[in-house]
Design a protein around this nucleic acid. Structure first.
Lengths: 110, 110
DNA sequence: TTAATTCATCGTAAATATACGATGAATGTT
DNA sequence: AACATTCATCGTATATTTACGATGAATTAA
C-alpha cells in the first residue's frame, strides 16, 4: 500500500460507503446485524450463544461494526447491550440506496 | 482463520451480501463503479487516466469487482470495455435494500 | 513480419483482517 | 472482602488485501 488514499481525493460519501461496505464484508457481521436488526435481542452474551465462534472473535466483529458506526453499545452492567445505530443505519440506507440507484449507463451499449 | 465459514451455515443472501459488500469496501472501487454507472465511459484505459494508480492496480480492482459480479468485461480488441453488470447490480440493489429495510428493533429500548 | 497498444497476470513487500486462547477491567453478588 | 459474571483487549499465527513494477498475451497497425 504505497499510495495513500488521500492522494486520490475521495469524496466523503465514497469514504463513508467504503467504510460501511467493508464492515458488511463478512458474513458473520451480516448475521450479527440481522440479529440486532430483529426485535429479539441486543446482548453480547446472546450473540455468543447464537454464533459458534469464540467470544473474543465476536467481540472483535462487534468492534468493527461499532467503528463503522453501524451499531452502538449501551452498558448495562455487567452486560453490554448492542443495538443498531439507527441514525447511521438510516444514513447507510440512504447512501447505498443512492449509490445503486445511480446506474444509468445506457449509452454504452453493453 | 481456524474456523471455516461453512461451520456456521450462512444463508445464500448472507454470503451474497458479504461478497458484494466486500467488493464495495474500498473507496477506489466505489469510484470505479460510480464512473461505470455514469454514462461516460467503459474502457479500462479511460479509468487509468482518471485514477492516479498503476494500471496493474486498477486491473486488480476491476478483477475484484468482476469476481463479485458487479461488473462485466467485453472484449473490444485491443481494449476491454467494462460495464456495470446490470442484472447483478439490480440484485445487489434489492439485497441491500431489503437488508437495510429490515431494521425493526423497536422492542429493545435503545 | 515487426512494432505498437491494451490489458491481465506474476512476483513481491507491507499492511490489514481473522481466528484463537489468555488475561484484565468493571460491575454485581455473597 | 472475596467471588462470579460479562465483556474487551492483548498476544499471536495465518490468510488476505493492496500497492507497485515487470512481464506476457492478444490484437491491430505499419
Amino acid at each position: 500500500m504505497q499510495r495513500t488514499l488521500s492522494d486520490i481525493g475521495y469524496s466523503t460519501s465514497e469514504i463513508e460507503l467504503a467504510v460501511m461496505a467493508k464492515a458488511l464484508g463478512h458474513p458473520v457481521r451480516i448475521r450479527i446485524l440481522r440479529l440486532l436488526a430483529g426485535e429479539t435481542c441486543c446482548f453480547t452474551g446472546e450473540l455468543t450463544g447464537l454464533i459458534p465462534m469464540a467470544q473474543s472473535t465476536i467481540s472483535q466483529h462487534l468492534k468493527a461494526l461499532k467503528e463503522a458506526g453501524l451499531i452502538q453499545g449501551e452498558i448495562d452492567p455487567p452486560k453490554v447491550k448492542y443495538c443498531i445505530h439507527r441514525e447511521n443505519w438510516a444514513k447507510a440506507q440512504a447512501l447505498f440506496g443512492e449509490f445503486f440507484a445511480s446506474e444509468k449507463s445506457g449509452g454504452c451499449g453493453c
